[in-house]
Amino acid sequence: MKVLVTVKEVAEVGDDFAIEGTDIAEGDLEYDLNEWDDYAIEAGVQLAEAGVADEVVALTIGPERSEETIRMALAKGADRAVRVWDDAIEDAFLDVETKVGLLEAIVDEEEPDLVLSGVQAADDAFGATGVALADRIGFEHAAVVNDLDLDADAGVANVRRELEGGVEELTEVDMPAVLTVQTGLNEPRYASLRGIRQAQRKEIATRDLADIGLSPADVDGALTVTEMYEPESESDAEIIEGDAGEAAGRLTEVLREKGVDA
């Protein structure tokens, strides 16, 4: 069985940042592996270690910079990676439909039996790509999976979906399937030194639009960011000033007024 794991390098913003036009100033962004995808990679690697998966392929849409991040997926145990990028993608806002078009092309090449995808990306947080991809490629799916028990012989994935309010849905999903992976599904490993060394020799294939039979018009999506701004603080909190001792002293008074430890 072949497992395809979608991986995104996400941009993170620190406490201080500037907005330039409709995005954060490049210098104020830091890049990292999307937290949810870390769990998806771990799930794929565990399936390989259990002898269920023969191959785990990481798939990313991202510029050359993102190879550093995709190497992390390789260092953790993915066998090889495919990176899709094109100058035409650089300036576009990649909406769900556009991303699905790019991912579909690689699914057609790779023919996986299972696609694992993070529930959402930490930066734009659409939370929709995995399920939309499933519809496009004719796979079954389950969103927000926090437990996975694959029965390859029966061709089903027994999953738990994490609903709101501490309720989990137990669902039997026909394979092939796309599962969107929630944090907490497993304990993502740290890359070992050996893994990091091995990752340097693993293949990262790159594909541009022409390679996958698409044109720049195919990445011209329906969404345009027209504004970006810091939300106005709605805070009417009384901020307790002073050094740690003074602030703690005042807070203790407040807490006692509210009946704490009375």
């Binding site: 769900v96 699905v100 929709a128 995995g130 519809d135 389950a142 979906r161 609903l163």
Partner: peptide
């Protein structure tokens, strides 16, 4: 924009070929 909403809305948008904005 719930766990169940996100389990089918993206598939509906994809299938109908209409743009999707979540959350």
């Amino acid at each position: 924009n719930s766990v169940n909403g996100l389990d089918y809305a993206p598939a509906v948008a994809e299938s109908l070929g209409v743009p999707l904005v979540t959350d």
